[in-house]
Write a protein that binds this DNA or RNA. Structure first.
Lengths: 225, 225
DNA sequence: AAGCCTAGGTGTACGTCGTACACTTGTCAA
DNA sequence: TTGACAAGTGTACGACGTACACCTAGGCTT
């Protein structure tokens, strides 16, 4: 009887919480969060599913850890800058992190409890408002008014990234002229705007900054009143 | 051999899409959306799981139908009112509908494609901005800036309705004084504010209206420029 | 009256999921 | 040498959504 041959010569570096998180990030980045299962993740790491549970309590904690990684990618507050530009820049940095990991906003929304890392981010944001001369009460209102936009969330209802085939889409727009005249009108004007647009004729970055500035300017007026 | 006795005398009214939706709404209202499964829903209707599929294509379509029911609860636009109060009132009505069905916002966020009912609501919202004298372009920006708030979404990051036991909470706040000083400070001032508050010392309705007015006032300024 | 179509409800089965629990194995301290 | 402990394994369970074949009762055509 032949003895077992080591078909796998490399000793396979051991798992670790960090390695698990990295692989989970990669999986979610590549295929969306719905393609991230404990079993698939284990498979990716060439390990049996239950091995993950030695490094992560359960799937929920895994998701929390993944969010922490994303939040930690957000730049620290700029030093010495005026409050508004400092907050603005930080939120734009958060948005960049979120765009790098499109699954993150959905995951955050689906969770009920914030992780300590997220709390720390919120705490630092509160500090930025206070440092900008906002009273405690007004800072409180500001945090609520900004809401998830503080984390760079776009807060759009539907990300129109769904790629339907062109034919069906054309037919849809055709029938829309009668049933949804206003949306149709909007679509017409937007689609032949200037060329500095993303996707279906609409610059998401511009829209985000516009809404952000609307809020920040409004808050500033409240502060100075 | 005794013939089978009808132990079930009432003929059990037949299923229908509407009956399925109503039962699904009830289930989600009662126990949250995570307690809504096709199997449980079928059980509630005293029917075998697969029977549902004669009235609903699949679970996703069921969720879409549930959202439609919620959206249809939103009041129609007030006639003859000024644009800002009309939009304001309608959004507040949407918020009331959402508070009646707390699962609805999460479900909407998790979907990629809007239902025709939701599209109709958006269309009518666009119409309200146009009727208020907004240009097409500015209306477009307004719709983006309002985002999911148009549907009454609160856009808070974490709904602090999680009821942890008091002891753990007290301990948490204790350690927080050092690690999260700003959140702690906010908590201190908010918790002994005036008594016109809801829940943990914070009037969600007030915060929602404040943020809403911030945006509407800002948009109005853009329009008049 | 006879036959048949069809809408609506049933039963069984498959593949996937998260994870509990008992086990082996490899490593290092005493 | 022992024996504790951390890390990985194997098996199993109860959910889940839903494909597919089947039954059955009512109403229509002939």
């Amino acid at each position: 009887m032949a003895r077992r041959i080591d078909v796998e010569t490399r000793p396979r570096e051991p798992l670790s919480r960090e390695r698990v998180l990295r692989a989970a990030l990669a999986l979610a980045d590549a295929g969306g969060v719905e393609s991230l299962s404990m079993r698939r993740l284990a498979h990716e790491l060439e390990v049996v599913p239950m091995a993950l549970y030695k490094h992560v309590a359960n799937k929920d904690e895994l998701l929390g850890g993944m969010i922490d990684v994303v939040v930690e990618e957000i730049d620290p507050p700029a030093v010495g800058a005026e409050w508004k530009t400092a907050i603005r820049e930080r939120i734009l940095s958060a948005r960049r992190a979120l765009l790098r990991h499109p699954w993150a906003s959905r995951v955050m929304e689906s969770r009920t409890e914030p992780t300590p890392t997220v709390l720390a981010y919120m705490d630092s944001m509160i500090g930025m408002f206070l440092a900008g001369g906002f009273s405690i009460d007004l800072t409180h209102h500001a945090m609520h008014a900004m809401g998830s936009r503080l984390m760079g969330f776009t807060q759009e209802l539907f990300n129109d990234t769904a790629d339907t085939d062109a034919e069906m889409e054309a037919q849809m727009w055709g029938s829309m002229a009668d049933t949804l005249p206003n949306i149709y009108q909007l679509y017409l004007t937007v689609s032949h705007d200037d060329a500095s647009v993303v996707g279906p004729g609409c610059d998401d970055q511009f829209e985000f900054e516009l809404a952000l500035d609307l809020l920040l300017d409004g808050l500033e007026k409240l502060r100075d009143r």
